[in-house]
């Protein structure tokens, strides 16, 4: 049986992409004389909804993987216990979005466009600074793949970047033009990246895709030593990327509050934070955490990401998705 009843088991519920090194997990288990039990509950949205649905009789002690686009849903449900882990004061203030510390930032990433460096579409230009409005040019007709914000969290993140980039009154015009320019919309990242994107190992038909700022570096890191340079690159005009921050929190009603707090401390410790980039391919929140060379070289932090107040996102999220759907799909 699993850890719902066992006293010396701490259960951590997360989305499917959660990853850590085996010895990092073992170290916590040994020093606290506890068994860690992991429960993967689907993609980011599914996992959170499952946690919220069961808040009367929680499935786990700790939840990992609420991002800033879902932050308000998680906080409004009143499902998390306030706790300020050791080391929280060293985390940059801009990443701490819940003043009551019910949800603590653990890592962050940037969603932006990637391009295929082998494509001849970019001859005579610098795609790294390509402006979003240039993508409505007939030259890019049918060449751009985006993810449906109604079913994909990076899809939603990119949509939010365009809101900030063009402004609340203009962003839908751009999407309208992109639709005319035959932008390709797919349901999720796996399809977009592996089935559609020509720069991935899937060798799809389109040279531009919505992905992460770390993806080109990951192509090198996971290339089996075949690559020393990324086959893809980031398109990063000012405000053309969205910062996704991932949070963890203690689920209310846990009978193992003290252990859960220790785990939260551990998540912000250098031991775990050093492990985040190599295992999950996102940036650790701890400024002193180590970043492997390949990511330092090919996954620089975008200088000027889009910034949208979480309160404004919370207020408009669903309506914006509906508007987007009307303009781009219907």
């Amino acid at each position: 049986m699993t850890g719902e009843q066992a006293a010396n088991t701490l259960t951590i519920m997360s989305h499917d992409s959660f990853n850590l090194s085996a010895d990092v997990v073992a170290e916590f288990e040994q020093s606290n004389n506890v068994k860690l039990q992991f429960l993967k509950a689907g993609d980011a949205g599914t996992a959170l909804n499952r946690a919220l649905l069961t808040k009367e009789n929680p499935l786990a002690d700790v939840f990992f993987g609420v991002d800033n686009t879902f932050l308000s849903r998680a906080l409004d449900a009143n499902a998390f216990e306030a706790y300020a882990p050791a080391g929280l004061d060293t985390i940059p203030a801009e990443l701490k979005l819940d003043p009551q510390n019910r949800l603590i930032p653990i890592d962050y990433g940037f969603v932006n466009l990637n391009y295929d460096r082998a494509s001849d579409l970019f001859q005579g230009m610098n795609p790294e600074t390509l402006k979003l409005e240039e993508l409505t040019d007939p030259k890019f007709k049918g060449k751009v793949v985006v993810l449906n914000p109604a079913s994909s969290s990076p899809g939603l993140a990119f949509m939010l970047a365009t809101v900030d980039y063009f402004g609340e009154d203009k962003w839908l015009d751009w999407w309208q033009q992109m639709r005319q320019n035959e932008v390709v919309v797919v349901d999720g990242w796996e399809t977009g990246y592996y089935t559609n994107f020509s720069g991935s190992s899937g060798k799809g038909p389109q040279p531009i895709v919505v992905s992460y700022a770390t993806s080109p570096a990951a192509e090198v890191a996971f290339s089996e030593g075949k690559l020393t340079e990324p086959p893809t690159g980031n398109i990063l005009p000012p405000k053309g990327s969205f910062r996704q921050i991932e949070f963890a929190g203690i689920l209310k009603g846990t009978p193992r509050l003290e252990l859960a707090q220790k785990w939260m401390d551990y998540m912000l410790s250098k031991r775990v934070q050093d492990d985040i980039m190599p295992q999950m391919v996102v940036y650790p929140v701890l400024p002193s955490a180590t970043i492997p060379d390949v990511y330092q070289k090919f996954a620089p932090i975008p200088e000027q990401p889009a910034s949208l107040d979480p309160a404004i996102i919370a207020q408009n999220r669903d309506a914006w998705i509906q508007e987007w759907t009307r303009v781009v799909l219907r």
């Binding site: 499917d16 796996e190 592996y194 899937g202 992905s211 990951a218 089996e224």
Partner: peptide, 14 residues
């Protein structure tokens, strides 16, 4: 299969 398809790179795809 889904775990591998969650990250970029030839190694994961293969």
């Amino acid at each position: 299969i889904y775990q591998f398809l969650g990250q970029p790179g030839l190694e994961n795809y293969g």
